[in-house]
């Protein structure tokens, strides 16, 4: 059996949908419980907070994990990133009010859920600044004056527009990754690789079904 730690919510639902396409049956609604199995009992799923997925995988509680690359970078995940699942693709961006002259400032205050990625970005950009860690509603930062700009995930850009913010710079692409603990990958190599190959070819499988 392979245990997969799933990041609760949209990511888990999208991943389980992919498995259903592959013919891996999961009782609809079973994902409401925090721990469930596929019908063949070959896969066990645990639903956890996104930030905890790398911990479950790193400590070998789960052999595989499904989580965003933003979380992996922030966690400094030291295991294997086996596959880009192309779920929840978006961009990590620097954003701020249109009036903010970011490029002219040498010192900026940045609010973000991703302090490590933000610090690295500032360092690589040759900027000095303070990073303020916020756990949500990051867009409010410049609106209420807690920060000059923000670093956050941007998908459609609607939340930014709603708060009169614009993308100043795209930092990197973010998407959901299938991750593994190195030992688990090696000890269950064949089963994991079979699953990876099927996930890689999912587009073909969809065509076959149609």
């Amino acid at each position: 059996m392979i245990t997969i730690a799933l990041s609760k919510g949209r990511v888990a639902n999208a991943f389980l949908e992919k498995l259903r396409v592959l013919g891996i049956a999961i009782e609809p609604g079973s994902e409401k419980s925090l721990q469930f199995y596929d019908s063949s009992m070959l896969l066990k799923f645990i639903l956890v907070k996104a930030d905890d997925v790398p911990t479950y995988v790193q400590s070998a509680v789960a052999e595989l994990g499904v989580v965003g690359s933003d979380v992996l970078k922030e966690y400094e995940f030291d295991g294997y990133e086996l596959l880009d699942l192309k779920i929840g693709s978006c961009k990590l961006c620097l954003a701020g009010p249109a009036t903010h002259a970011y490029y002219e400032k040498t010192w900026v205050t940045v609010a973000s859920k991703y302090p490590k990625s933000t610090e690295l970005f500032l360092k690589n950009s040759g900027k000095l600044g303070t990073v303020i860690k916020l756990n949500g509603s990051v867009e409010l930062g410049p609106v209420v004056g807690i920060s000059d700009v923000i670093v956050d995930l941007v998908e459609s850009g609607r939340t930014l527009r709603d708060n009169n913010l614009i993308v100043i710079e795209e930092i990197e692409d973010v998407s959901t990754r299938l991750i593994s603990n190195p030992v688990a990958y090696k000890t269950k190599f064949e089963a994991i690789n079979r699953l990876i190959e099927r996930l890689k070819n999912i587009e073909k499988e969809i065509l076959n079904v149609q």
Binding site: V57, A60, P182, V183, A184
Partner: peptide, 8 residues
């Protein structure tokens, strides 16, 4: 050498 129990 890895410990299979802890993955380390």
């Amino acid at each position: 050498v890895y410990s299979v129990d802890t993955g380390k």
